[in-house]
Design a protein around this nucleic acid. Sequence first.
DNA 1: AGTGTTTTCTTGACTGATTCCAGATTAGCT
DNA 2: AGCTAATCTGGAATCAGTCAAGAAAACACT
Lengths: 142, 142
Amino acid sequence: MTSVDAVQRLRAAGLRVTNQRVQVLTALDRLPHPDVDSIAGAVRDELGSVSTQAVYDVLRAFDEAGLVRRIEPAGHSARFEPRVGDNHHHLICRGCGRIEDVDCAQGEAPCLHPVDAAGFVVEVAEVNYWGLCPSCATADPR
Amino acid sequence: MTSVDAVQRLRAAGLRVTNQRVQVLTALDRLPHPDVDSIAGAVRDELGSVSTQAVYDVLRAFDEAGLVRRIEPAGHSARFEPRVGDNHHHLICRGCGRIEDVDCAQGEAPCLHPVDAAGFVVEVAEVNYWGLCPSCATADPR
DNA sequence: AGTGTTTTCTTGACTGATTCCAGATTAGCT
DNA sequence: AGCTAATCTGGAATCAGTCAAGAAAACACT
């Protein structure tokens, strides 16, 4: 909760510490798989205003520094999560777009290996489980 | 190659048969994981012209009818493939965007099951292997 | 604390993919 | 041949994300 923690993480990642960055990082800790808009909204609640650009820039910097992971489910805009480095996977609701984390069954990345990699150097296996979340499943029977 | 085949597949799927649709379908058979633009280009080569709209509409109709599968790798626009119903997976080159099919190791969809589905009704598991294709791997060593 | 350099933030314009809409056209049934 | 619903055209609009130039702020060094 304290932003001291966020400041330390920023420095540890070799990034400059700005109000915007601290707020983006704490928003990421607080919100579940937010998109750019939700993050911008959360930061505006704290700071009064931020340009959307700044949020994009900050998120890119975080992504490159390995502080966050960017996920882009088909048909949705980009989401971000601070959980990083454990190559976990996602459950995605095709009804409401809700996303939940799923631990990876096997060890380290790429936790899965293709049968025939066709000469590719495979770095990570991204696994998305598509289905319906509990509330969408009961709402839309089929 | 013959469009007779395409016509039959369209009818079998309960779709109206139009020149545009036949050409889109044969283009899909011919091109490897094309995007909307490549498909539109291929169709224009055959018919002289098509509106981009028509291509989008046709692809949506095909997708809904289960004739094609739509794939949307993060950071790329939508690609389409006529191989359907076998829940195979993809190798994606993060250098050039090239996509290759990979057979699924296990049986039918969802070939993988999450450890803890958090109450979700899981329908399919989408697996994307990210890495470098043979030519990008040699071009960019790291 | 004061200054300078570099990075970050703001503002505003812009692109590319995709969708929406209204009207013209055409496939498939009678 | 004629009807009707589905499809196609053209054009405008939307949405996510990027680009670019200048203002502001962070860090490093006195």
